[in-house]
Design a protein around this nucleic acid. Structure first.
Lengths: 216, 216
DNA sequence: GGCGCATTTGACCGATCGGTCAAGACTCTC
DNA sequence: GAGAGTCTTGACCGATCGGTCAAATGCGCC
């Protein structure tokens, strides 16, 4: 029923170039809105992309391969943004501010991706896919934090990592629930900026305390 | 002191009293280890419980009903623990310490439950089930925080809620990933106690800052 | 034109899913 | 013992799943 090459296919509002890109885009949209790895079928993806279901397997091998491809695309953008924020000049405080800013911006823009990744924590089958992006992220940030924080104890870098990353990411992943109790979109302009100010404030509080204990 | 193990769900050879309890226990174990709402079948549950599959529907109506029953059981224990910690005497600082302690203990013991709940954030179909437990929890804690924190701004009670709850819960839900990079079990004795000290330290930092700005 | 290769198609597969059903078995009461 | 009501059983249903396949189509190249 679908016309040949010349005209743009009757696909939704995404007249993407190649078939592969159309499938990837459709999978992205579905994984991030309808549900995680389970909950989305190859038929759904194919229908949304406006292509035959067998093409999903032709281009990505399997459902898991498609899921990996979707994660990979986000992962690259994610890493790029963080490296940029952390690699610049300035002391730890300045770089941490840039880092949480970049992290918050990325996660607020791709909140569904954050939710998708967090959801995989409950699925041992896909742990490996998430670990791949988690470990470099952890090493990256822990290294920066070790400039001012000890390796162990209540103010250890590993503790700060979880606290700071949680402060950023949970605001985005819990957005659907927060939206109900706050009466406004947590990812919208006023509340997101309040969150940004809060995280900056928190970072400063912690770094101030670390400096004090260092001087003592 | 506290001696908490990773809380492996009830062992298979559990000759529980009623059929209903056996099914509930099996569903609990499977939801919390294998995967979320999707990823566990009624056949799995029945087999683990050692009963006929049709009994799942006889006693719980549907798969969703079973899932709700499992969540409900945790939810009650959760609420009980928090109310106990927060309702006692003392100033906000003392009550917040008791609260994060109780929260951390509960989540460390039932880390898989926390992960299960967080995973449902990606599944709009089950949002309603999670909201039911989230809203009272939020109101509860926000009310306590409003004694010392403003309603808006970078140190707003709603901001502190997300930061504190994230600091506690993410340590538990990210435990599988953290375990890899830390080389030890985050929910085991040494690291869990380090986390407890960190969260207490963090709460004190924040409350100190709030008191200072209040006096100013 | 004709060949080779990548792409696309629709029909098809076995497995598994949540859920149903009518018939048995068990238990308690008269 | 008869009956009633609660559990329990295994067989069964339609739908859907991920994945496969041979055949058809498009297209660059000689």
């Amino acid at each position: 029923m679908t016309r040949r090459r010349p005209s743009i296919p009757p696909a939704p509002p995404t007249p993407e170039a190649t078939t592969e890109a159309r499938i990837l885009g459709a999978a992205d949209a579905l994984f991030c809105t309808v549900g995680g790895y389970d909950g989305v079928s190859t038929r759904d993806v194919a229908e949304r992309a406006g292509v035959n279901k067998a093409l999903v397997f032709y281009h990505f091998g399997s459902m898991r391969g498609l899921f990996e491809a979707v994660l990979e695309r986000y992962y690259e953008a994610h890493q790029r943004g963080l490296a940029e924020a952390l690699s610049g000049v300035g002391d730890v405080r300045a770089r941490m501010h840039r880092l949480v800013d970049a992290y918050l911006d990325f996660m607020a823009t791709h909140a569904r991706y954050a939710t998708l990744v967090q959801a995989q924590l409950a699925n041992p089958d896909t742990h490996a896919l998430v670990e791949k992006s988690f470990e470099p992220l952890y090493r990256f940030i822990e290294e920066a934090l070790l400039e001012v924080a000890p390796r162990e104890g209540r103010a250890a870098a590993r503790q700060l990592f979880v606290t700071f990353s949680g402060a950023v990411i949970n605001w985005c992943t819990y957005a659907p629930l927060l939206s109900r109790v706050l009466g406004d979109d947590p990812l919208g302009s006023p509340l997101l900026e309040e969150r940004r100010a809060h995280v900056r404030w928190l970072v400063d509080l912690v770094l101030d305390a670390l400096e004090r204990s260092e001087g003592a």
